[in-house]
Design a binder for these strands. Structure first.
Lengths: 351, 351
DNA sequence: TTGTACGCGTTATCAG
DNA sequence: CTGATAACGCGTACAA
């Protein structure tokens, strides 16, 4: 009859029988060890080892209405930026009772909303989303959610609960001010995709130029970032503003494209032209000359957000919620001229 | 008493009551719609929509001993190669009842074994692992597993069940033969990490050189791949074999490093020196000159493996298991000299 | 085609 | 500190 019984895994009941206690006591050895006497616990754990018992998470989830799942909802898995986040999140979750579940909404707020719905059904232990541009409905769901939620990437959002990221507008302004300080004065902006955080960097660029009394020159595209697009954007910009002497780009892929386009045109970096990217992808530090860029710590965003979620799981959401600013760091390398000695490097809390 | 009842989601029972049928009928509307009359089904689904009912996967998993989870067990999430696999897998699973769960064992067979254990506890619908170098215990678990399993990346493994990948040894040999055909004759091999598939490519390199009567010159490192390491490996090789006139590299990161080292040394590509990489990462096609490399279709490996798994879920494992060879394609670009007209491009089934 | 009875493995609740 | 009992929400195996 029970033709499956022999293949099936040991259950709480089996362990309970073998160790002469009740099932609930075995359960407590896992969830609340402090409520079980040391000797009973030792006896039980021995049987657990002998039988190779492993808790059934489906049963646990059903009975307790909680899971160890942490949902990580990202705009993309192609973009290296988010891959770093994923790595940080996985590394932090590894070895804990928590599991990461990834969602990829491909920059669509509507898809994001759908995924929030789906994820929330599972009673996750926590939820991580990128940025603050959720649909109204999604934000609503997130605000009522029965778990903690952290928004990553951007520290300048109206937080739903927790926010961990950096100030993109200030980072953009800092980068441009760095270019100005290095003697570039007709600075362009190159950007692709132009999501909310890119817009903030563009705003930072504008702020810095405005303060310096310089005029702006912008070339953007809604297409996904790529080196190829970066080359096109630079060409476009130079066609419209031939006297441009430097660019701040939306990200390092665009920067690479601009870099290669400069090579093709025989524009010498950093003397004839300056480039500052954004994100600090590993590969581009190896170029000759190495790319100047703004370093952001995506790995830490993933790591920290899972860390907070684990610490705060089963915790009530406070009325006042928090923001963690991970900062950024301008990395002035070979695609920009050296700064005069007096210019201080501006450096936030980034490591 | 039921102080939670108001917050809680609608259940099968609620839908059943509202639509005047039994719970199991509602269940069947989801699992086996064909067993329910059209009118009843319509009525039920209407109530489902109205109530916003969503099946509880924990309860479903508990009752049926099955889940919609497909486990994807990878050696790394930093390496672009695996990120592409992840993307393919997610894209195929999107919108289905299946969910991807990623594991990252960081190239450790022991960690892989642990993760196989953990994953198998969840009664997954399917399991995807990379390559064929599992520990004995892991292979054992996989062979007895109550779900289909596919091994990706490498088509030349003794398959546990299904294998989807390419022939790395042949790809390596093809690449080197391509270099020979393009007039390079003192060809080196540069490799990092040197996992099983890298070893096979190295073997292919050796085969090709042996057939051509040329001598080998190899520089490898167990460290993870990076452009920086690629530059070091090339320097090492040139120190030992100054007359080397081309390299076939383990992957594109190493190739980029070699490429940049050539730039630094003023060795002109492709005339003075040839480089052929492996994998065809997007960025490197944009270089001046663009990198010659071997294209592999990691996205398809992810996509196809999930596709097969979905198709074969709840299917018994046949005694004879299958292999899908996705092929590869040599992309001869600017870092190698053009071939004499007579050399045919060798192209496998890759698109 | 639809329904009944029961069990899946665990945890909440309350009593001891 | 430990245990008995009753859910948790759904699917299996029959029966009707």
């Amino acid at each position: 009859m029970n033709k499956r019984k022999d293949t099936s895994l040991p259950t709480l009941k089996d362990v309970a029988r073998e160790s002469g206690v009740s099932a609930i006591t075995v359960s407590r050895c896992f969830r609340h060890p402090e409520l079980v006497s040391a000797e009973v616990r030792a006896r039980v754990m021995q049987v657990v080892d002998r039988l190779g018992y492993v808790p059934n998470s489906a049963a646990s989830a059903l009975a307790s209405r909680r899971t160890g799942v942490i949902c990580l909802l990202l705009p993309s898995l192609s973009n290296n930026v988010y891959v770093d986040v994923v790595n940080g999140a996985y590394d932090r979750a590894y070895g804990t009772a928590h599991t990461i579940q990834i969602g990829n909404h491909k920059y669509s707020p509507l898809e994001e909303e759908k995924l929030v719905r789906v994820f929330l059904q599972q009673n996750p232990a926590g939820l991580i989303v990128a940025g603050g541009e959720q649909t109204g409905a999604a934000r609503d769901l997130l605000e009522r959610a029965d778990c903690r939620v952290v928004q990553i990437m951007d520290s300048q959002v109206r937080p739903i609960d927790l926010a961990i990221g950096l100030d993109h507008e200030r980072a953009g302004a800092d980068a441009v001010e760095g270019l100005l300080a290095r003697g570039y004065c007709r600075i362009g902006f190159l950007g692709a995709r132009m999501d909310a955080r890119s817009q903030k960097r563009l705003q930072g660029y504008r702020n810095a130029l405005f303060r310096a009394g310089a005029d702006e020159r912008v070339s953007t595209s809604p297409s996904p970032s790529s080196a190829r697009l970066g080359a096109l954007l630079l060409s476009d910009l130079l066609a419209r503003h031939p006297d441009t002497d430097a660019v701040f780009t939306n990200n390092d892929d665009i920067a690479l494209g601009a870099y290669l386009e400069c090579q093709r045109r025989g524009m010498r970096l950093p003397d004839a032209f300056g480039i500052c990217g954004f994100n600090d992808l590993d590969l581009l530090e190896e170029l000759n000359p190495p790319l100047s860029t703004v370093r952001t710590d995506r790995y830490q965003m993933g790591w920290q957000s899972v860390d907070r979620l684990i610490a705060l799981a089963n915790t009530d959401r406070p009325t006042g919620s928090g923001t963690v600013d991970l900062g950024y760091a301008c990395m002035w390398r070979g695609t920009t001229r050296p700064a005069p000695a007096t210019v201080p490097e501006r450096r936030d809390r980034a490591g």
